[in-house]
Simulated assay, not measured.
Amino acid sequence: MGGLEVPTWDPETAILIGTILFEAIVLYVGYGGLERLVGPRLMKLLVGGGSDAR
């Protein structure tokens, strides 16, 4: 029967996939924190001064 075999993992491949996943998580968290710190100031600078414009 084709397609029912359990694939065997090469340890190097598993380490590579784990490293890429870890890097993606670190970048996601890092950019999220950076956006929270810099985002409001940057938007205020780009869009303009106050939020009282009616």
Rank of each mutant, 00 (worst) to 15 (best):
M1V: 10
M1C: 12
G2I: 12
G2E: 14
G3D: 09
G3F: 08
G3Y: 05
L4N: 14
L4R: 09
L4I: 12
E5H: 10
E5N: 11
E5V: 07
E5K: 06
V6C: 10
V6F: 13
P7R: 06
P7K: 06
W9F: 13
W9Y: 10
W9Q: 12
W9H: 07
W9M: 12
W9S: 09
W9N: 07
D10Q: 07
D10M: 03
P11N: 05
P11G: 02
E12K: 14
T13Q: 15
T13A: 15
T13I: 15
T13Y: 11
A14L: 15
A14W: 07
A14V: 15
I15A: 14
L16E: 15
L16P: 00
L16R: 13
I17V: 14
I17S: 01
I17Y: 03
I17A: 06
I17P: 01
G18N: 13
G18E: 09
G18W: 03
G18T: 06
G18D: 10
T19A: 14
T19D: 06
I20T: 08
I20N: 04
I20Q: 07
I20S: 05
I20L: 15
L21W: 10
L21H: 08
L21A: 14
F22L: 15
F22Y: 07
E23L: 15
E23V: 13
E23S: 12
E23R: 07
A24D: 09
A24E: 11
A24K: 07
A24G: 12
I25C: 10
V26T: 05
V26D: 02
V26K: 02
V26I: 13
V26E: 03
L27E: 08
L27Q: 04
L27Y: 05
L27W: 08
Y28Q: 05
V29A: 04
V29H: 01
V29P: 00
G30C: 01
G30Q: 00
G30K: 00
Y31L: 15
G32K: 01
G32H: 02
G33W: 00
L34K: 05
L34T: 06
L34Q: 05
L34V: 08
R36L: 09
R36A: 06
R36W: 04
L37K: 04
V38P: 00
V38M: 13
G39E: 05
P40M: 04
P40Y: 02
P40K: 02
P40S: 02
P40A: 03
P40H: 02
R41W: 09
R41P: 01
L42F: 10
L42A: 09
M43N: 11
M43I: 09
M43W: 12
K44M: 14
K44G: 14
K44Q: 15
L45N: 07
L45P: 00
L46D: 09
L46P: 00
L46E: 11
L46N: 07
V47A: 12
G48S: 07
G48L: 03
G48M: 04
G49L: 07
G49P: 00
G49I: 01
G50E: 04
G50D: 04
G50H: 04
G50F: 01
G50A: 07
G50V: 01
G50N: 06
G50M: 02
S51D: 12
S51I: 05
S51Y: 06
S51H: 10
D52A: 09
D52P: 00
D52Q: 09
A53Y: 08
R54Y: 11
